[in-house]
Computed example of a mutant assay.
Amino acid sequence: MGPERHDSFYDLMATWRPISADHIAPVVLMADPRIAKLIAPERAREILTMRRG
């Protein structure tokens, strides 16, 4: 992911909101095999621990 896309991604993650009380992360990023294979394990951990909204 290029620097511009990386910055855009983080901007979007900062505005992400859960759709229910038990929706704690945008799980589709890890569950969709087409997307998951693009995300390195360390980046996945970073995404899942980011502060949101």
Rank of each mutant, 00 (worst) to 15 (best):
I19L: 10
G2S: 07
W16Y: 06
M13H: 11
L48T: 13
S20I: 00
P41H: 06
K37N: 04
R5T: 15
L29E: 01
R51L: 10
L38W: 06
A21L: 00
E46I: 07
V28R: 11
R51W: 06
T15I: 07
R5A: 15
I24T: 08
A21T: 01
H23D: 15
E4M: 14
A25C: 01
M1L: 04
V27Q: 12
A14H: 10
A14E: 14
A36E: 07
L29Y: 04
M1H: 02
I35S: 01
D11H: 10
R34E: 11
L12N: 09
R43V: 14
H23Q: 03
T49A: 12
A21H: 00
D22C: 00
I24K: 09
R45S: 13
G53N: 10
A31E: 05
I24L: 10
E4H: 11
P26Y: 01
P41Y: 05
L12I: 08
H23A: 03
P18D: 06
T15Q: 15
L12H: 09
H6M: 15
F9K: 08
S8P: 01
H23W: 09
L48E: 10
I47K: 13
I47E: 08
L12V: 06
D7F: 09
E4Y: 13
A14Y: 05
E46T: 12
I47H: 12
K37M: 04
A21Y: 00
H23G: 02
S20Q: 00
A44I: 09
A14M: 08
K37D: 05
R34K: 13
I47Y: 13
D32F: 03
H23P: 03
M30S: 12
R17H: 11
V27T: 08
R52T: 09
A21D: 08
R51D: 12
P18V: 04
A14R: 13
A44G: 13
G53C: 02
A25H: 05
A31D: 04
S20E: 01
P41S: 04
L38Y: 09
G53F: 05
K37V: 11
I19C: 02
P41A: 05
R34C: 04
L48P: 03
G2Y: 03
T15L: 15
L12F: 09
L38S: 05
M30F: 08
A44T: 08
W16N: 04
A44D: 07
M30D: 12
R17M: 12
G2P: 10
V28Y: 12
R5V: 15
R43G: 02
L48K: 14
